[in-house]
Structures are given as structure tokens and as C-alpha cells.
Amino acid sequence: MKYTTEITIDLPRKEFIKKLDNAENMKHWMRGLLGYQVLSGELGQEGARMNMKFKRGKGEMEMVETIITRNFPDEFHATYDTKGVHNIQKNYFKEVDGSTKWISESEFQFEGMGMKLIAFLMPGAFKKQSMKYAKDFKNFAENGISVLKS
């Protein structure tokens, strides 16, 4: 499953990247993030692997981020792996009239009948979650509003 999301953040690209590229800021816009731990490499650099733990409903979910391309301020690509799901995320950042357009290309690959069935029955849920993160980042970056307060 592939889709693209776009959002414009009312910040110059340099400021946008500064907020996005700070791992300590993730908790303010990645709803449900309980914590992260570097598994290998240098935090935020190409090749680095990081375990991320999220609260989901009554349970928890863990995923591993692997940074593929770090070419700020233009692009950042990573993969995210959790049980039954491999997500390839390609992010592009364009400066437009003093604001930043964030274009995110998502590709999900599913293993097992259960995950494939969920993807087939609820493809919109994945795009909705991606847009939720983008909107939460926008609210944090522009207004300083953290999801920790909601």
C-alpha cells in the first residue's frame, strides 16, 4: 500500500528542520510515544537504528526505525519495522514563501494474513494516522502545543 501526505508548516525550513531533527521533541508530536532507545549507530544519523515504544489502546507496540537517508534540509528517509509491518517513509521538505511544505511518501508492506486483512479492510486508517502525526507536529512547531497535554 502506497500513499502521499502533504502539510504546510508556517515556519522557515531551517526552523522546521531544527524542531523535526530533535529526538527530544518526538514526544510532543508522536502521540503515544513512551520512549526510544538507540540500538546502533549515532542518534539521528544515516544507518542508525532506534527502538521506539508506543502506547496503543490498552497495550504497547514497539517498532525499529532505521535511517536510510539524512540529507537535511531537503529530505529524510527511514524504515519502520514492527511485527508484520515494514514501512518505508520518504520525506521531502520544500521552502515555500517562508513556510515549509512537508511531503511524505509512505509504503507499507505487510506479512501474514492478519496484517494483510487489516490493510485491505482499513487502508484509510494508515493515511489518517500519518496525517495525525503531521498535524500534531504542525501544532507543536507553530504553536508550542504538545500532545502530552491532551
Score class of each variant (00 low, 15 high):
2 K>E: 15
6 E>S: 14
6 E>Q: 15
7 I>S: 15
10 D>N: 13
11 L>R: 11
13 R>C: 14
15 E>Q: 13
16 F>A: 08
17 I>D: 10
17 I>W: 07
17 I>L: 07
18 K>H: 11
18 K>M: 12
19 K>P: 02
19 K>A: 13
22 N>S: 13
22 N>P: 05
23 A>V: 10
25 N>H: 15
26 M>W: 05
26 M>Q: 08
27 K>M: 04
27 K>E: 12
27 K>H: 10
29 W>V: 11
30 M>F: 14
31 R>V: 13
32 G>A: 08
33 L>D: 00
34 L>I: 06
34 L>N: 04
35 G>T: 02
35 G>R: 01
35 G>I: 00
37 Q>V: 12
37 Q>P: 03
39 L>A: 03
43 L>V: 04
43 L>S: 04
44 G>V: 12
46 E>R: 07
47 G>H: 09
48 A>G: 03
48 A>E: 06
49 R>Q: 13
49 R>Y: 01
49 R>G: 05
50 M>G: 05
52 M>L: 14
53 K>E: 01
54 F>D: 01
55 K>H: 12
55 K>P: 00
55 K>A: 11
57 G>N: 05
57 G>R: 01
57 G>F: 07
57 G>M: 07
58 K>C: 01
58 K>W: 06
58 K>R: 03
59 G>K: 00
59 G>S: 00
59 G>T: 01
62 E>H: 02
62 E>S: 09
63 M>G: 12
63 M>T: 12
63 M>S: 14
64 V>I: 11
65 E>A: 10
65 E>R: 06
67 I>W: 10
67 I>K: 03
68 I>S: 11
70 R>F: 10
72 F>A: 07
77 H>C: 08
78 A>W: 04
78 A>Y: 08
79 T>A: 02
79 T>H: 02
81 D>N: 15
83 K>R: 00
84 G>A: 06
86 H>C: 04
87 N>W: 07
89 Q>L: 13
89 Q>A: 14
89 Q>S: 10
89 Q>N: 12
91 N>C: 15
92 Y>W: 04
92 Y>D: 08
93 F>Q: 09
95 E>S: 12
96 V>M: 08
97 D>Y: 10
99 S>H: 10
101 K>L: 15
102 W>E: 07
103 I>T: 14
103 I>Q: 01
104 S>G: 04
106 S>A: 10
106 S>T: 07
107 E>C: 01
109 Q>F: 09
110 F>K: 06
111 E>A: 13
111 E>Y: 10
112 G>L: 09
112 G>H: 09
113 M>H: 05
114 G>S: 05
114 G>Y: 05
116 K>W: 05
117 L>T: 15
120 F>P: 01
120 F>E: 08
120 F>R: 08
120 F>C: 04
120 F>N: 04
121 L>P: 00
122 M>Y: 07
123 P>V: 12
124 G>V: 02
124 G>I: 03
124 G>E: 01
124 G>R: 10
125 A>W: 03
125 A>V: 06
128 K>C: 02
128 K>F: 11
129 Q>Y: 00
130 S>V: 09
130 S>F: 09
130 S>E: 13
131 M>H: 00
133 Y>V: 11
134 A>D: 14
135 K>W: 01
135 K>P: 00
139 N>S: 14
139 N>W: 04
139 N>A: 13
139 N>R: 14
140 F>D: 15
141 A>G: 11
141 A>S: 06
141 A>C: 08
144 G>T: 11
145 I>C: 01
146 S>T: 08
147 V>E: 03
148 L>Y: 06
150 S>N: 07
